[in-house]
Amino acid sequence: MEGLNELAFVLGGVNHWITVFLIMAGLYIIVSRSNMIKKLVGLSIFQTSVYLLYVSPGKIIGGTAPIIIANAPDQMYSNPLPHVLILTAIVVGVATLALGLALVVRINEAYGSIEEDEVYSGEDWN
């Protein structure tokens, strides 16, 4: 019985573990890669992991999507607040991605490369 509880504790946290894994993966890509488009993809992985972090605790097993059903007073609903916050985050995310890509395109035109190392080296900063 004790072992079963432990198993439920670990499995119940699986959303959190995967969220942490995605954060680690995103951070690793951003820090280790010098290609700027790859960095932006890593940044959006980092960002999507936050969606998971917010929406997971709002889910209630046995509940349904937070759209009120008439004549069903006992129906349970998942928490709508994280959904609203993350809805906003997604659209802002694509806006920032577009801005980042625009910067990358301009960097490529000015330096002829999107590799961070090549941009930093061989440039007289005037």
Binding site: Y51, G58, P82, I90
Partner: peptide, 14 residues
């Protein structure tokens, strides 16, 4: 996870 609005946005945007 019951976040239908968010899922729809993520499919269209992401």
């Amino acid at each position: 996870m019951d976040a239908v609005d968010v899922g729809m946005t993520e499919a269209a945007v992401g």
